[in-house]
Design a binder for these strands. Structure first.
Lengths: 348, 348
DNA sequence: GTGAAAGCGCTAACAC
DNA sequence: GTGTTAGCGCTTTCAC
């Protein structure tokens, strides 16, 4: 009977000592076989491996971590899990991490300060080797402490706009972002090319770097072509927000031939409002969103939008972090994954 | 200068020994203060706490885990992160776990067998105290081993139909499911109440218990009312699948006045096909989906659907698991979170 | 009330 | 090549 130490319920863990005893070697040798470290006699190695297979031994992750000082785990902090693209980011991260044998410890900031406190404890508790911060809100107090401690951190989707001046929302951290500026420029260029000259812009939260980048990127082609700066309208970054904003605009008889929103949800609301007002899309007004969430392909009409490469950003961030854990230095400039203009019926 | 042992880069970890030394007590006493265990002199406790605060000491999660034999972490295995409701499930799980001070180690099965192998290593490596299996595919080999070992596992969204016979896809495991049968019955009843008698059903994967449950639940009211068994049509569980299926059905002049699909994506495809064929929804054909993903509220017309309480299911599963870790026995019958019929314009 | 000492399961010098 | 010996940072008897 195997390892019948009598644990309550299941059988007792088989430890490296058990393996060593049964293979008639020392724990050190088992460890060597386990990690292909040092030269071990071929015959001995085979014997050890047989015992390992026979006993079903698996090293205790915790013990290995304690002894090595590394946990083979990275922490991921996300604002919340329910927004449309978070799954994509996580999938990208998870794929890379799993491929390299790393675990992924997930944390949410859903419960505000308390969440962050708990998270910080985990960090200082050495629960993981490195950290991925997804869309961190601006004033994340624990950040400064992190940087000072030299703990490996990569920021995903910092507000950086890809214009090379490195002015993300969290300068000083290695980061992955998308070409917010170029994406917005592509949208503007597309509108101009299809004869639209009087756009309305519904920007995102003003505090975010990406809002600045998208705003500027969109304005550039218009002013360059001699048109006035696009009209801006504030709105909640929701479907209802977009709808309300455009309804108000129509009520005051503001003239426009196109709408560019900083996110797809708002754009969906814009479509709603236009539909209600019997304004045809795209003949009377063209609409372009941002992100390319699932919904974008399903609106009526389907939404032309700037795709944000969420999954690729997750992959890139994880890759950079793992490279650093493996000894490589962090890149000094943000890695920019390009956006892509997805042309659908709302702005053909 | 604090703990200037000289770690490369950051400052060296402050350990319980450091705290003990500076507070002029033993490690044991610090541990007692830390865990409110045993009677510690009030003055001593205060002194220790001061040192802890001053040094910013945080216990090493790994060391605590090794010593206590518990990691305060639960593993979550999901098929993939990109499907619409997974974020909701995870959010529910995460909220409960964080509220109880547990970490969440996320695993994906994206890469098939390899993923599962890695995952299994983590399990036997004692990386976590308990396990949440979300929508596990039928033949998950490691499952039987898990059950035998007595390792705490809760299955989320097992195929169980809530009819009380406990015939989930993974009998023997405690599980959380939704009232698939009752939800489908509600959809059927709603259709009948609005004068629809010739429905078409597009079921989900035949292998899943929930497909059986939804199929039966939908059929019951029709046969009870003396109508024939609803016509079934196979289709991929995607938007394209629903579209193709209905297009074919229209081509062969099959008569029907309503469509019930086992998921919203398929329903969206059905709407597409009907729209193309100039069949009006809902006057000519009513459509009801299942799940209530974000998309459902945004289709044209908005989709009537059976809401599946993803987030609540996640919360329930986590709660059951934590209760077990705290000593409570597992419930012997699946916990059923009820569905809810969300009536929108596609089937008013 | 508090300390000393023995682990938890593993790795990593260092000897032989 | 392989064993011995220390730890990694904490918890937990068991004395005092």
């Amino acid at each position: 009977m195997l390892g019948a130490h009598g644990d309550l319920g299941g059988r007792m863990r088989v430890t490296i000592a058990d393996v060593a005893r049964r293979a008639r070697v020392s724990k050190a040798t088992v460890s060597r076989v386990l990690n292909n470290r040092g030269e071990v006699d071929a015959g001995t190695a085979v014997r050890v491996r047989e015992v390992i297979a026979a006993t079903g031994y698996t090293p205790s992750a915790g013990a290995v971590g304690l002894a090595r000082g590394r946990t083979q785990t990275v922490g991921v902090l996300v604002p919340h899990l329910t927004c449309p693209w978070m799954g994509d980011v996580l999938q990208g991260v998870s794929d890379v991490l799993e491929a390299h044998g790393y675990g992924l410890l997930l944390h949410t900031m859903n419960r505000g300060a308390d969440s962050v406190t708990r998270f910080t404890r985990h960090v200082s508790g050495n629960a993981f080797d490195g950290l991925l911060l997804v869309e961190p809100p601006d004033p994340l107090s624990c950040l400064t402490g992190l940087r000072e401690s030299g703990f490996p951190v990569v920021v995903v989707d910092d507000g950086d706009d890809g214009d090379g001046d490195g002015d993300g929302d969290h300068p000083g951290f290695p980061s992955v972002a998308t070409s917010n500026r170029a994406g917005a420029t592509a949208a503007a260029t597309h509108l101009l090319a299809t004869g639209r000259t009087r756009p309305v812009v519904i920007p995102g939260p003003a505090a975010l770097g990406r809002t600045r980048a998208r705003t500027e990127g969109f304005r550039t082609p218009f002013t360059a072509a001699g048109h006035p700066t696009p009209h801006h309208v504030e709105a909640d970054p929701t479907r209802a927000g977009g709808r309300t904003a455009i309804t108000a605009l129509l009520a005051e008889n503001h003239e426009f031939d196109s709408v560019f929103t900083h996110n797809d949800l708002t754009a969906a609301g814009v479509l709603d409002a236009l539909h209600e007002a019997h304004v045809d899309v795209p003949t009377q007004v063209a609409v372009i969103g941002f992100d390319d969430i699932d919904l974008a392909a399903h609106t009526q009409p389907p939404l032309t939008t700037v795709r944000r490469p969420s999954r690729e950003m997750g992959e890139a961030a994880a890759t950079i972090l793992l490279a650093n854990l493996a000894g490589a230095p962090f890149p000094t400039t943000p890695e920019i994954i390009p956006t892509e203009l997805i042309v659908r019926a709302s702005a053909p």
